[in-house]
Amino acid sequence: MSENKNFVPYEETHRLRPLLFVTTIVGEGQSDAIVNLNREQECSLCLVLRGKGTAPVEIVNSVKKEIVFSILRADRWPAYKMKLSQRFNVSKVAKGIAFSTPLDAVAGVSIYKMLSNTRLFEKPIAPAGKKGKKKDE
């Protein structure tokens, strides 16, 4: 594989914001509200799946469940968590659980920018240096 000598990794010139993979499990029909909560936190990727719960019926409300996978910026998690716990306390129907898992890597800078909602006009914190400059520029 040929390596580009002028290549400078994005993380060396920009401040990276950690991302979290958030899983929210709620009862049937509750996923739209959860997606809206995610959108409030500038989440750009939400995936809703249908599943079934196995916890005893005395503890949870319904067996049919909706699972919402989303990717959030780590600094947005406390606000999301607060809104979520408020929602879970509204009623038995709105109950659910959520947990976050740290993301280690993503496939490409553009994907990272999309997931972290990084603006295109954001300036680098450090210049690319001699390595990053091409002779023509």
């Binding site: 659910g96 959520a98 898992t101």
Partner: peptide
């Protein structure tokens, strides 16, 4: 298994159980 950084709603579940 995957590591979990933070959890919401499990306390209520534990109380109910």
């Amino acid at each position: 298994s995957l590591p979990v950084a933070d959890v919401v709603g499990i306390g209520e579940l534990r109380d109910a159980a």
